[in-house]
Design a binder for these strands. Structure first.
Lengths: 216, 216
DNA sequence: ATTCGTCCTGCACAGATGTCCCCTGTAAGA
DNA sequence: TCTTACAGGGGACATCTGTGCAGGACGAAT
């Protein structure tokens, strides 16, 4: 296995990026422009090196005919690079009103792909953006994404998404003798108590299986 | 939804075929050649029609810059891209010893795929499993994954991964007059003070751009 | 000391490619 | 009847783009 230099690797990565981001490979000049190489020949040198080392192929005298053969790690870079089964597509449903949840999942504003590894191989998962600080002591902050496995029941102490009125809310689940206690993780907030008479199982939307927060 | 003519559909299919089979879109003349259209203008007519109907987009005056937007059925054509387009492959480097980081990234034990949306389109990102409670008040718990953009500098107050001794540690970054202060988010823990003399920029491994926690 | 690979600048050039203009003809609507 | 969308021919033209040549600087290997 021929090793790549830093520079060659950067070229290869830019090509790969271009293909994935735009759908087509870059030209020599685009590569040069991106890496600060003023001469097309400088770029060509790299391409020849990459070609010689078996990382890509090209067709003569045609524009944008770069084809990746291997990733920088040396893994064969087949056409569908990450036609990965490890991925799950998760609809992000924003704020959700009553019956609208299922609809919202059908026509989501947005979807995210998550590695199955991160949600424990679950299925039937959707995502929600958290608003409010009610779970702050459980490390779930305003603006975080939570990933929720759809289910109608939950175990005591689990973090669930429940329907209260027509708002989706994120709380700890504590079923008790006379009522269901939805416990915030915030000492400034009082639990929500729902008499068992008023409680229908459909009010549990699911159990939180993952939390993601963007920083920076 | 605009309907396509037989001919337009054929053009669209050839473009799609070309992208999948060769990895890059065809030129006007390649399309014409394949469909028996002798004039580039004839082909251009079709492309304009397809563009107008929202099935593809192009960039002006650039070769092979066709991008499919929908399949002939009208489904959004995220087929090949969406499966991997928005994804970034992130190596998970466990606990990391001194110089070993770069190596660890080259030969990671494990990789995760993350939607670019979740890490803000960053590149050069790696993942770490957090051990310890030192950032607990920042909502980063023992066992969480943090996603880190590799970089050697950071802004005051950012959550960074730094090398202290030969351990990677996650802290707030506060450069001060005489020393660098690495501040835990845990009132029971003292900040780590590193005299500026002992500090090398290589000690910053990167800035945390995302946090993920599995629950349940 | 010499060779080799890497990594560039600069430039010229031919061939590849998209755009534009002017045409012909058909079929479907208004 | 007039207009519009479709389907194409033919060709001029400016620009894009890959290739090739001449060189230079550097570091590692021989």
């Amino acid at each position: 296995m021929h090793k790549l230099t830093q520079r060659q690797k950067a070229v290869l990565e830019y090509i790969s990026d271009s293909i994935h981001a735009r759908g087509y490979p870059p030209t020599l000049r685009e590569i040069g422009n991106h890496l600060g190489i003023r001469s097309t020949n400088g770029v060509n040198d790299h391409l020849r090196a990459l070609e010689r080392k078996g990382y890509l192929t090209r067709e003569d005298m045609k524009s944008r005919t770069l084809r990746l053969m291997k990733t920088p790690d040396g893994k064969p870079s087949s056409r569908p690079p990450a036609a990965n089964d490890n991925l799950i597509e998760i609809p992000i449903v924003g704020r959700v009103a009553a019956g609208a949840l299922s609809e919202a999942i059908e026509q989501p504003d947005d979807t995210v792909h998550i590695d199955r590894m991160l949600i424990g191989g679950q299925r039937d998962v959707f995502g929600l953006r958290v608003t409010g600080d009610s779970m702050i002591e459980a490390g779930i902050y305003d603006g975080d994404f939570v990933f929720v496995r759809k289910q109608l029941t939950a175990n005591r102490g689990e973090v669930i998404i429940a329907l209260v009125g027509d708002e989706a809310t994120c709380k700890y689940y504590y079923p008790e003798r006379e009522h269901i206690r939805l416990q915030p993780a915030n000492k400034d907030m009082a639990p929500i108590l729902i008499p068992k008479n008023d409680w229908r199982s459909t009010q549990i939307l699911g159990v939180v299986v993952g939390v993601y927060r963007r920083l920076h």
